[in-house]
């Protein structure tokens, strides 16, 4: 490979005003649609207590005699279970609305925190090199080889069960991915001319890292981040499947799926199916938005 890579990369001073960003984003109809769907989902999640026919977290409102009812049945409480009920007699529609709240909170919350922690550490590792790099990367090794299940079990043992603790467990499990990815691209970027130029200008290190290095490492980071939100939600489902997730009386989408999993073979598909669809739609919409964001924000895709 020769040195044809002398790419005149534009130093990413944020010169694009917000309006231009919006219009570029809107170029893709699909992304707009994704944004719309995601907005609707977020609205449902926020308004769940006002629009759900039942409070699925209140044990007194549930009755096991209404358990595992087929979609469309009218239950003891007098309203129709449009999506059926789970084994506890929980209205699936209400369960999904409330579950969305928890899943979004857990998924997005953990992904954002993990992204900030991981990307910063990865950037520092790549830029500082040497001993700092070694220390951070070995920490990454340690983290990546530690099974998520064991980490979650330990956090559960130390902190007890709760939604916040699941977020902590997911951050602990996920940050290393971001760190590793960012370091990988930062290692390449920091050898490029614009960084050398910035260094020659004796700009402060922090400025170089966050103003120059970071924006150029963003595209792979956004790829990973949009996937990791999805993955965090799915991982939370897996933790719930293993009994390590959110409390059973406050199910997330993942826990609803995990709970219905046992009924798949016996044909009571709705317990697992509808939460699965809700999860899928949520994740697809996040990804449609994420894909376009990545393209719009990528300084190197600018003509």
């Amino acid at each position: 490979m020769s040195t044809t890579t002398a790419a005149p990369v534009v130093a990413p001073r944020v010169e694009t005003p917000f309006r231009r960003f919006v219009s570029e984003f809107a170029e893709s109809r699909l992304a707009l649609f994704g944004l719309l769907v995601f907005g609707a989902i977020a609205l449902i999640a926020i308004l769940a207590p006002f629009i759900a026919p039942q409070n699925p977290y209140d044990l007194a409102q549930l009755d096991i005699m209404d358990g595992r009812m087929e979609p469309g049945t009218v239950g003891g409480a007098g309203f129709t279970y449009w999506l059926g009920t789970d084994d506890q007699g929980r209205d699936m529609l209400s369960g999904i609305m409330y579950g969305l709240r928890i899943s979004l909170l857990v998924g997005a919350g953990s992904a954002i925190i993990a992204c900030i922690v991981g990307a910063s550490l990865g950037m520092i590792a790549a830029y500082a090199g040497g001993r700092t790099d070694g220390a951070i990367m070995r920490l990454v090794d340690l983290q990546l080889s530690f099974p998520a299940i064991l980490a979650a079990l330990m956090i559960l043992a130390f902190l007890g069960k709760g939604i916040l603790n699941v977020v902590i467990a997911l951050v602990v499990v996920e940050w290393a991915y971001y760190a590793r990815t960012v370091r990988g691209s930062a290692l390449v970027e920091r050898r490029r001319e614009y960084i050398e130029a910035a260094q020659c200008l004796a700009l402060p290190t922090r400025r170089i890292i966050f103003r120059h290095l970071l924006p150029n490492c963003l595209p792979p980071l956004i790829v990973v981040a949009t996937m990791q939100i999805a993955r965090a939600i799915a991982l939370e489902a897996t933790l719930s499947f293993l009994g390590l997730g959110v409390p059973i009386t406050e199910p997330s989408l993942g826990l609803l799926i995990a709970n219905g999993y046992e009924y798949m073979l016996s044909g009571k598909y709705w317990i697992s199916f509808y939460p699965g669809i809700a999860l899928l739609v949520t994740i697809v919409s996040i990804n449609l938005v994420g894909d376009q964001l990545r393209d719009v924000l990528n300084p190197r895709l600018k003509k």
């Binding site: 999805a230 799915a234 993942g254 798949m264 699965g276 994740i283 697809v284 894909d291």
Partner: peptide
């Protein structure tokens, strides 16, 4: 391409245990 990208979302949005059971089924 759009189809490929949309389908690829399935790969990481569905929990592993669930996909596993569906494969077996």
């Amino acid at each position: 391409s759009r189809g490929i990208m949309a389908t690829s979302i399935l790969g990481f949005s569905l929990p592993t245990f669930w996909v596993g059971l569906m494969l077996i089924m």
